[in-house]
Design a binder for these strands. Structure first.
Length: 788
DNA sequence: GTAGGGTTAG
């Protein structure tokens, strides 16, 4: 054998070995390295086709550095090696370098494949306009577009909005160039029509394809799914002779996204029994289905199946499967299970981190959430949104607003969801001015038609005491969903407009929106705040009978609440005994609140004792129990209840009230000595009280629940935090402006009485939001009708 | 050496 023949034989041998590196797997990278190092060890210098092959393998394994190293050793790289490397740069997201490479390649050695590769680069980086531009340049440079060119350009076009015109033009060109005989080109055209929402055109074209391949079928099926025409998609899938897993997977995820969970699970089961291969896509969708539908046991079963199947090695490493499992366990209150999966994952991405973060936050485990947030290697919009709204939901409004600002300063432009979170923070703080500013920013950014932000604003205005603004927003929002209706009904209810709340509910039904369990919770609350006993019973029964919603403990608790507030303890008792489960904390709490209002000491003490047994760390029950004893004059028992509380290390949440004045929040505690202007507040009150007394105000010292001398009691009364905050606001707000004060606990009975007289004396409206509801004091009346 | 479908976090 001659030397040159020998070298050719070795080269062929290497070439056939390199062929084993396709298609790309983890193993093929190390195989390529082995072959390459073999060449180096034996002093073999690859050239020409073999070198291109090596560059191509490295390029495709995202080992661009190796590929580039080899490439730089070639004095005059040919078009094939340039194409491989250019594509590698594009696919790694480095379009700039790819583009540079394209421009540096002389026109004389370019070919159509080279143009196609660059177009692919733009397409993969979602730059549809550059796809078109380069396509035009290709024509100017007098290269013939082929089937690959059209497929790629159309693929790029499918990623841009507003491309109906270009699509039609390209369709024409396809017909002119004769590339319309290629199924791949027609598939790409169908895909663009699909993405324009033109399903009629898409279907017409699909029907005209003589040689439909798998992709033709999956394109049209997924097209229907994307355009929410699930039934049309299903009809095609059922009629297909070949069972394509891709089409079935698309159906499953489509059903999940439309909340059609039964059909999703059904489809998955059929897939299994028909022997269609279940891959990571199907598993991911069905697990996500279980997460959304709360199907814990089925989800766990699928998880077990994943662990047992022969595909386990690949599924174990599958990011989407693991991420879906994290969400499944988070949504089923098993955050620690989710965490274990997270900890065992060999590779994690931002989705995994966000999933756990939202798990912690939604479970109220905000401390762990904070730690997790601070440790995240990467954050995106969702990360911030989850954290901000999580802080809002867990009572950390101030921190949430700080985070919102931090988000902006770190260069993230908040979207409507972030605004919704920040607005919720304002809701809980009662930070009306701040909330108004956020509203203004939304309008400026053109985000004010957003549903999530709008719904948050409805709640914010209501929770800040301006229910009229909520109503105005509700009436002018371009789109409403059930959350909007629920928010508005709740807003009316909190402010004591029970009848209007019920009227709105009827309008909701007329608008064709189906009520959910939240709707009925807000309805029952509204009835409670307005004392609408008959109505509450009516809607409670309606919920199950007409809408098939099984009342939960929370619904029962609210019904009990309405009855107890009306003093109907016997009926409340009947409701409790009719419950299909043991009464929990919410029910006892409702009972206790009613007993407190009506001075039903015996029953109240029973309820409080049950409550203390159920949640021994909750301060309110001890305080109420102690207060009940005190009301009955049983000071020893009262003291014992407080002692029990101390012995168990339970601290009473101190009463505090706050008010926004000149865009600053002023906080007052009981007997406050901290606020810089508190002395002025006390002397203002001392001037006001005699005037109130002239109108008939008698300080009601029974609300001072310490066993002290009665002359001191009146002084303690006037130092209540809500009185201080109201007085401060009266002093500092412009003449005639409505006072809006917030309190973390329920308003004290004497303060409630005092504010009625105060509103008359100063001729202004005083609005107080306490832990339960709103009180509008106007002209010696309160909107709650002394019913709270 | 170039194309195209289905998955996960609020």
């Amino acid at each position: 054998m001659k030397g040159s023949d020998f070298i050719r034989a070795v080269a062929n041998r290497y070439a056939s070995q390199l062929q084993l590196c396709y298609p790309q797997t983890l193993a093929s990278i190390s195989l390529a390295k082995t072959i390459h190092s073999h060449m180096i060890t034996f002093g073999f210098h690859p050239r020409g086709h073999l070198l291109n092959r090596l560059i191509d393998v490295y390029s495709k394994s995202s080992k661009i550095i190796y590929a580039r190293h080899l490439f730089d050793q070639i004095p005059e790289p040919d078009i094939a090696s340039r194409t491989s490397l250019l594509l590698a740069y594009s696919l790694s997201g480095d379009v700039k370098t790819a583009q540079k490479m394209f421009e540096e390649t002389p026109l004389s050695i370019r070919d159509s494949v080279f143009y196609n590769a660059m177009i692919t680069g733009y397409s993969r980086n979602e730059d549809g306009n550059s796809c078109i531009e380069l396509f035009r340049q290709m024509l100017r440079d007098e290269f013939r577009p082929d089937d690959f060119t059209f497929t790629t350009v159309l693929g790029g076009l499918a990623r841009v909005f507003n491309k109906v015109m270009q699509c039609k033009q390209l369709h024409g060109l396809v017909l002119k160039t004769g590339t319309g005989f290629f199924t791949s080109v027609l598939n790409a055209l169908v895909s663009v029509y699909v993405n324009c929402g033109l399903m009629f055109e898409a279907r017409k074209l699909f029907d005209e394809i003589d040689t439909k391949d798998e992709l033709s079928w999956t394109t049209i099926v997924t097209g229907y799914v994307k355009n929410d025409e699930l039934d049309a998609a299903r009809e095609l899938v059922d009629g297909m002779s070949e069972k394509l897993a891709v089409a079935w997977n698309a159906m499953i995820s489509g059903y999940v996204h439309c909340n059609r969970y039964d059909e999703a699970v059904d489809m998955f089961r059929k897939m299994y029994f028909m022997g269609i291969k279940i891959d990571e896509f199907a598993y991911t969708s069905v697990i996500s289905c279980c997460a959304n539908a709360g199907l814990f046991y089925l989800g766990k079963q699928v998880h077990c199946y994943v662990l047992r199947t022969e595909a386990k090695p690949t599924l174990d490493f599958s990011l989407p499967v693991n991420n879906a499992l994290i969400t499944l366990y988070c949504k089923c209150d098993k955050v620690d299970w989710a965490r274990r999966i997270f900890d065992n994952m060999p590779v994690r991405d931002i989705v995994s981190w966000n999933a756990i973060l939202s798990g912690y936050v939604n479970a109220g485990r905000i401390d762990e959430g904070r730690v997790f947030f601070s440790k995240m290697p990467e954050r995106n919009h969702l990360t911030w949104n989850v954290m901000i709204s999580g802080l809002a939901q867990n009572g950390f409004g101030e921190e949430g607003l700080k985070l919102f600002n931090q988000m902006k300063s770190e260069g993230f432009r908040p979207c409507d969801y972030a605004f919704a979170g920040a607005i919720s923070c304002c809701s809980m703080l009662g930070a009306l001015e701040n909330g108004r500013q956020l509203h203004a920013q939304l309008v400026r950014l053109g985000l004010d038609s957003s549903l999530s932000a709008g719904n948050a604003l409805i709640t914010m205005y209501a929770r800040c005491g301006v229910v009229e603004a909520s109503n105005l927003l509700f009436l002018t929002m371009p789109y409403l969903d059930s959350v909007s209706w629920n928010a508005m009904i709740a807003a009316l209810g909190q402010h004591g407009h029970g009848i209007q709340a019920l009227e709105l509910f009827e309008q909701m039904l007329e608008a064709g929106i189906s009520p959910d369990r939240i709707t009925f919770l807000t309805i029952l609350s509204a009835c409670s705040h307005a004392g609408l006993v008959k109505e509450s019973q009516y809607y409670f029964n309606l919920m199950g009978r007409l809408y098939g919603i099984t009342p939960g403990e929370d619904h029962y608790a609210r019904l009990v609440d309405v009855l107890c507030r009306a003093g109907k303890f016997l009926e409340a008792n009947d409701v409790i005994s009719s419950m299909p489960f043991e009464p929990g904390a919410a029910v006892w709490e409702a009972l206790l609140a009613g007993c407190r209002t009506h001075g039903n000491v015996d029953l109240g003490i029973q309820a409080a004792e049950q409550l203390i047994e159920l949640i021994p760390h909750h301060d309110g029950s001890y305080v109420l129990l102690s207060n009940m004893y005190a009301t009955a004059g049983r000071w020893n028992d009262a003291a014992n209840a407080r002692k029990l509380m101390r012995d168990r290390g339970v601290r009473k949440e101190p009463g505090c009230s706050w008010v926004e004045v000149e865009n600053k929040v002023h906080v007052f505690l009981v007997d406050d000595t901290v606020h810089p202007e508190v002395q002025a507040v006390y002397s203002y009150l001392n001037k006001l009280v005699p005037e109130m007394k002239r109108l008939g105000y008698v300080p009601d010292t029974k609300f001072v629940l310490h066993d002290i001398e009665s002359d001191q009691k009146e002084r303690v009364l006037s130092a209540h935090s809500e009185k201080l905050a109201v007085a401060f606001a009266l002093m500092r707000l412009p003449r005639g402006a409505t006072v809006r004060v917030f309190k973390n606990l329920r308003i004290c009975g004497d303060c409630h009485n005092a504010f009625k007289f105060m509103s008359k004396v100063v001729g202004r409206e005083i609005v107080v939001r306490d832990a339960k509801r709103f009180h509008h004091f106007r002209d010696s009346q309160c909107s709650c009708g002394d019913y709270w």
